[in-house]
Computed example of a mutant assay.
Amino acid sequence: MASNDEVKLAIYLDDLLTNYHIESKDERQYSEDNEDYLLMYMNAIRLENYAATTITNYRYELKRFMNYVEKPMLKVTTADVRQYLAAFSHLKSGTIATKLTIIGAFYAWLVREELILKSPTIKIKQPKVPKRLREGLTIEELELVRESCESLRQRALIEVFYSTACRLSELMAMNISDINWQDMSAVVYGKGSKERKVFFSFKALYHLKRYLKSRKDDCDALFVTTRRPFRRLTNRGIQYQINKIKLSSQVKKPLTPHVMRHTFATLSMDSGIELTDLQHLLGHEDPATTLRYAPVSEERKRQAFKKYHMQ
């Protein structure tokens, strides 16, 4: 026969279980949690001096991933990540690799913050990305591009890109006051806000001065719009001008700010520049990165063999 205490316990448990029900977490709540983690991560990489464009790209990709999986980020599985990447199987492997890198970096941060034990991306291998030969312009093609410029601004853009090997974002942010005219140089801030000095050739300074003298504005930006209100030429505006030059030149190779940077690398290598010097001029931390920008031509290999091979 049950004691009074056992009867009371049975009544208590019966009442507890009768009134107990399981509720799924409100979708809005986990969405807010995801936004909080995303904001924390954006602040973290901002403090690590990630470039503004990189932060924007990371935020866009992670938001897209969150909207796809529709679950708390702390409960995402390897299968979720694979399913997301598979949804973009029609894209190039390089694009999918970038998506995986961004998601992986976010989860690596969650692990470091001890919010999860391990990353759901750790078992996913990066897709094989075919090596692309970055091809710069030849001297003849560069001259065609120069002659195809239709304005002082376009010619100055081409000459400054080629002389300084600036990235698009670096040239866009450059001001007139940044230029040391006597030293023929300027200080720019590259990836991760890293500072480096770039140099102007006599030809670049000549065409840049012509362009600056033609301007009727008081804007300090190195390249500005031609219509009022005068303002700094944006990345897209610069790309638009370079594309106009490309169409006029009828050069078959692609022509972009990055191609001009690569042209600087290949023509400098052909002229005998040391790899270490080129590495610093381009602002690379890893020499292997510089080698990707400056593949050795067959002719240069042949000349090097003749010059250095001992009989």
Rank of each mutant, 00 (worst) to 15 (best):
M1W: 10
D5H: 04
E6S: 09
E6I: 14
K8V: 12
L13P: 01
L13D: 04
D14I: 08
D14Y: 10
L16T: 02
N19F: 11
I22M: 08
I22E: 14
E23R: 11
S24V: 13
D26S: 12
E27Y: 03
D33K: 03
N34K: 00
E35R: 09
L39D: 14
M40S: 12
M42A: 09
N43T: 11
N43Y: 10
N43V: 07
N49G: 02
Y50L: 14
A51Q: 06
A51Y: 04
A51H: 01
N57S: 15
Y60P: 01
L62I: 05
L62Q: 00
N67D: 15
Y68T: 02
V69H: 06
K71G: 07
P72Q: 05
V76E: 02
R82H: 07
A86W: 11
H90R: 08
L91P: 01
S93Q: 13
T98M: 12
I103D: 05
G104D: 13
Y107G: 00
A108Y: 11
W109M: 04
L110I: 01
K128T: 14
V129E: 07
L133T: 03
E135N: 06
E140A: 11
E141T: 01
V145S: 03
S148W: 10
S148E: 14
C149W: 07
R155S: 03
V160Q: 00
V160P: 00
F161Q: 01
F161I: 01
T164F: 12
A165P: 03
R167G: 05
L168M: 05
L168A: 02
S169I: 13
E170D: 05
E170C: 03
A173K: 03
M174Q: 06
M174D: 00
N175C: 10
N175G: 04
I176T: 08
S177R: 14
I179M: 06
M184C: 09
V187P: 02
G190I: 11
G190D: 05
G192T: 06
S193I: 04
S193P: 01
K194W: 12
E195K: 11
K197G: 01
F199K: 00
F202N: 12
F202P: 11
K203L: 13
K203F: 12
L208D: 05
S214F: 08
K216N: 14
K216Q: 13
D217A: 06
D218M: 10
C219V: 15
L222D: 02
L222R: 02
F223E: 03
F223C: 07
F223Y: 08
V224K: 00
T226A: 13
R227P: 05
F230H: 04
R232I: 09
L233M: 10
L233G: 00
Q239D: 04
Y240R: 07
I245H: 00
I245F: 07
K246R: 13
S248W: 11
Q250H: 12
Q250V: 05
V251W: 09
K252Q: 13
T256A: 06
M260Q: 01
H262D: 02
F264I: 02
S268A: 15
M269I: 09
L278F: 09
L281S: 02
G283P: 09
E285S: 14
P287M: 09
T290L: 05
R292V: 12
R292L: 15
Y293N: 03
A294I: 06
V296M: 12
S297W: 13
E298R: 02
E299Y: 10
E299G: 01
K301R: 12
A304D: 15
F305C: 10
K306V: 14
K307C: 09
Y308E: 08
H309Q: 10
Q311Y: 09
